[in-house]
Amino acid sequence: MNLSDQTALVTGANRGIGRQYVLELLERGAAKVYATARRPESLKFDDPRVVALRLDLLDHESVVAAAATARDVTLLVNNAGIATGAALVTGDLAEARREMDTHFWGTLDVIRAFSPVLAANGGGAVVNVLSALSWFAAPGTGTYSAAKAAEWNMTNGVRLELAAQGTLVQGVLLGAADTDIAAGYDGPKIHPRDVPRRSLDGLTAGSIEVIVDEWTAMVKASLAGDPATFYTRITELLDAS
């Protein structure tokens, strides 16, 4: 995918990784970027190529309205997410549902709304920002890990379904980035700009999966082994951090 002159839409663009996607796309010559958030007034960009748009993953009507407005989109970046910290067994079940509604159902709703738009514009691409926690769980991440695991395999499923219309579907997996959502984590963090840089480099190469950092590469490489060994190592690493 040649990123110059593309029209992109980024969810959760008001801060963190989403904001960095907008900035990186502009730097690479995007013609227009729809920056979306639940509160569009929170979007602060000076570039005239940025169009602020309301989109709430938990509000189906806002998703439909965004797709009706942004009919020229060729690149969809699904970045918006939450982390409630709710425990799976003893935590608030409503919070667990909110995580799944956001990462799985909400992201899928956006893909379903924009897939005809992408098809009409030649196919384009979908980028889903996932997590190394799609592949394991750590203390305090149970609901987030479960929701991201569902989103990861949903990404694989929609990739197969959208291939016939020429839409590339990319999954982007990372450990911790220095954003608000990881504020309570004291371990190593990458710069959030590293995520769109590697993701967009991958798009130009046609990559369907991008592993952003060494932590995530280690997690992926461990999946074929004994999970007991893996979780012992993960516990040691987390304790050390």
Rank of each mutant, 00 (worst) to 15 (best):
A182T: 10
H191V: 07
Y231R: 12
G157W: 09
W215Q: 08
L203P: 01
Q165S: 12
L238R: 15
A221E: 13
E161P: 05
D178R: 12
D178L: 09
R233L: 13
A176F: 15
G175H: 08
V195W: 02
T229Q: 15
I190R: 00
I181Y: 02
P227R: 05
A221S: 14
R198L: 15
T232H: 14
I208Q: 11
V172N: 04
L162A: 05
T229P: 01
V210T: 13
F230E: 11
R233G: 13
A177V: 09
D213R: 01
A221Q: 11
M154W: 04
I208W: 10
D213P: 01
G225E: 10
E236K: 13
L238H: 13
T232K: 14
G166D: 09
E151C: 10
T235D: 15
I211L: 08
G225R: 05
H191W: 06
M154P: 02
W152D: 10
L223C: 06
D186L: 14
G202E: 00
S199C: 11
L162C: 05
G171R: 06
R233K: 14
P192T: 01
A177G: 06
E161R: 03
P188S: 12
I211E: 07
I181W: 04
E209P: 00
D201K: 03
A164Q: 13
T167V: 10
A217G: 10
R193G: 02
T204S: 12
I190H: 05
M218Q: 10
T167K: 01
I181D: 01
V210G: 00
E161W: 09
G175Q: 07
A228Q: 13
R159K: 10
V210E: 00
T229A: 15
L203V: 00
D178K: 10
Q165K: 08
I190K: 02
T232E: 15
I211W: 04
A205P: 01
I181M: 15
G175N: 08
Y185M: 09
L160F: 08
V172K: 05
V169T: 04
